[in-house]
């Protein structure tokens, strides 16, 4: 079974691949858009990464108010 901490570890790994080492140490409750300076196009890329890595489909609107890794993990957990 995939735990929340597994998901968070994977998220940090994916984000650091795309946005650099800074993402690897980011606190789960920090606004990653702000911390990593992600624009809307990069957010779309991240969504594609997530869908591929976790083998799920996540509608954009589920992520509309999600700005932290903890929030992302919660959305993914519902679909795993």
């Amino acid at each position: 079974m995939t735990t929340t901490s597994d998901i968070l570890a994977r998220l940090r790994e994916l984000a650091s691949k795309r946005f650099g080492d800074k993402a690897a140490d980011l606190d789960a409750d920090v606004d990653f858009f702000e911390a990593l300076g992600i624009d809307s196009l990069q957010a779309l890329d991240l969504l594609t990464d997530l869908e591929e890595a976790f083998d799920v489909e996540v509608p954009d609107y589920e992520l509309a108010d999600v700005t932290t890794f903890a929030g992302l993990a919660a959305v993914l957990e519902d679909r795993l």
């Binding site: 779309l44 969504l47 594609t48 869908e51 591929e52 489909e57 509608p59 954009d60 609107y61």
Partner: peptide
């Protein structure tokens, strides 16, 4: 009706 996006794989 949702305006959601669809990834390439899906």
């Amino acid at each position: 009706l949702t305006g959601r996006s669809l990834g390439a794989r899906r």
